[in-house]
Write a protein that binds this DNA or RNA. Structure first.
Lengths: 243, 243
DNA sequence: ACTGGTTTTCGCCTGATGGTCGAAAACGTG
DNA sequence: CACGTTTTCGACCATCAGGCGAAAACCAGT
C-alpha cells in the first residue's frame, strides 16, 4: 500500500508521440498489463525520478519504448491534475508532445503499437484527452512554425510534404502555396537534386530540405512589429510549453 | 520535519500576475517573512490541495492576495521541476499567467506590492525566470490573440490602447495600424461615444471596446487554411497552456 | 471671431502575402 | 511521336500591413 504524505503527490510524465501515417497521424500507445485499467491503452511515461526534471524524465521513460534518436522534437504540453483523473492515490502528470519523422520507423516493444488518432482504442485514464491536446498543439504549430521538420524525412518533394501536411491537418493543402510560403519564409531550401518520377511518369520533382532542425516561429505575426524592422529572423524559441 | 515518500513531491502553484503600468508592466510579488529566502520577493501561490486541480488551486491562493474578480485572465504557463530550483525538500511548481486590467487597482496585503518587470527586486527561488516566461507569453499572445481585453479597461481610446500595447511589448506601436488591424479582425468595436479631449485640447477620441472577453486566436495564420474557407471565426481557445 | 497649437482620425499609396488558375516543363508509355 | 501524368512556374487578384500626410475636431489665447 502506498502512503501519501498530505500535500505531496506522485508525479508522472507522459508523452504524446505522434507520427504521420497517411491518411491520418498515429500515436504511440502501450497496452497495460496490470490494474488499474488493465488491457487499456496508455501513453508512454512513468514516474518522475528524484534527480531529474520533467523533460529529462520523459526522455528517460520514452527511451524504453522507442529509440530516442528517432524522436525529432519534444515539448511540454501542460499539467493534468484533475483529482479524479485516475483512481486513488492521486497522481499529477506533466504531458509532453513528441514527434517522429515518417522515415523513421522505430522498433517498439511487444506491448506497444501505433494507433490512428481517428480510431483510438479504449484509453487508460485521461490519456485520450491528452492525446487530443497533443494533436491540437501540433496542428496549431504547423501553421506558424517550422515544426514540420520533425515530421518530414530529411529530404522530400513538395508533393510528399503536401501529403504530410494534409494528413496532419486533416484537410487538403495546396502544393503551390505550401512551397511558396515555406520557401519565402526560409523554412524550406532546395537541395538542387530531383526525385525519380513515379511509375506513371511525370516531371521529376525537386527535392527540398528543412533549413533548420530546431523549432522556430516563422509566421510574421505582422501586426505590432517594432517599427522599421523586417518580418524575417524570428527568435529561436525554447523547449518549454507553447509560445 | 517533513517526510517525503519516495516518488512523491510537494506540488506548488504559482502565478505571474501582470498589470500594465506605463512605461513597463508590473508583476505582483510578496516579500517572504520566513526562511528559506526570507526577505526576498516571491510570486503568489502555495500548495496544491488534495481536492483541487492546479487551476482551482492557483485561483484559491491568488484570492489571498488580490480580488479574484479583478484578474481578467488566467492560463497555464508550464511546469518548473528542476531538482535544484529550491532548497530541499524538492518542490514541483505549476506556473500560471494572470492578467489584471489597468482600470482595476486591487488592494493588496501589506507584504505584497507591484514591481516593474525591468526593475525586479531580489526574487526567491526561480521566480525571476518564471516571471520572464510569463512576460514572454503575454507578448507573444498580444500579437495573435485578443488577449488585450485582459489588460485594457472596459472602454478606451485608440491612443490609450496604443500606450498599453507599447508598454507591454516594449517598443513603439502605430496607433493607425493598431486600430485598423484590431477592428478588421473584429477584436475591437466602437461604442459610438467619444472621450473628452485632454487639457491641451485636440480632437475627441472615439471610444472602443473589446468585442469579446474570452481568449480567442485572431491571427489568420493564413498559410495552409482549409480551401475555400475565410480567415474569420477562429476557435474559442482553451484555458490550457499556450496554443 | 480668428489664429495657432494639439490630438485624433481618415484616406491614399506602396509593398508583401496568400489563393487560384492555367500554361509550360519534364517524364513515361504505347 | 502523340498522349497521359506529375510537377513547376508565372500571372492575376484580393487582402493585409506600414507609412505618410492631410483633414477633422478640440482648446487657449489674442
Amino acid at each position: 500500500m502506498e502512503v501519501t504524505e498530505p500535500g505531496t503527490y506522485a508525479h508522472d510524465v507522459l508523452a504524446v508521440v505522434l507520427r504521420i501515417t497517411e491518411p491520418v497521424p498515429s500515436v504511440l500507445l502501450w497496452q497495460r498489463a496490470r490494474d488499474p485499467h488493465r488491457g487499456r491503452w496508455a501513453l508512454p511515461g512513468g514516474r518522475l525520478g528524484p534527480d531529474e526534471d520533467v523533460e529529462a524524465s520523459v526522455r528517460r521513460h520514452l527511451a524504453e519504448k522507442v529509440d530516442l534518436a528517432e524522436v525529432a522534437h519534444v515539448e511540454q504540453l501542460g499539467v493534468f491534475s484533475d483529482p479524479h483523473r485516475g483512481p486513488p492515490p492521486r497522481r499529477i502528470a506533466t504531458a509532453f508532445l513528441g514527434l517522429v519523422p515518417t522515415d523513421a520507423d522505430p522498433t517498439v516493444p511487444d506491448d506497444t503499437a501505433w494507433h490512428r488518432v481517428d480510431r483510438l482504442p479504449e484509453t487508460a485514464f485521461d490519456h485520450g484527452a491528452i492525446t487530443r491536446d497533443g494533436l491540437d498543439r501540433l496542428r496549431a504549430k504547423l501553421s506558424y512554425t517550422n515544426i514540420g521538420f520533425a515530421l518530414a524525412p530529411d529530404a522530400f518533394t513538395v508533393s510528399e510534404l503536401r501529403d504530410l501536411y494534409a494528413a496532419a491537418l486533416g484537410h487538403r493543402v495546396s502544393a503551390t502555396n505550401l512551397q511558396r510560403v515555406l520557401t519565402r519564409r526560409g523554412v524550406l531550401v532546395p537541395t538542387g537534386e530531383t526525385a525519380a518520377p513515379g511509375p506513371a511518369g511525370g516531371r521529376p520533382a525537386a527535392v527540398f530540405r528543412f533549413s533548420e532542425h530546431g523549432l522556430r516561429v516563422t509566421d510574421p505575426f505582422a501586426a505590432l512589429r517594432p517599427p522599421g524592422e523586417p518580418a524575417a529572423e524570428t527568435h529561436p524559441a525554447p523547449t518549454r510549453p507553447g509560445s
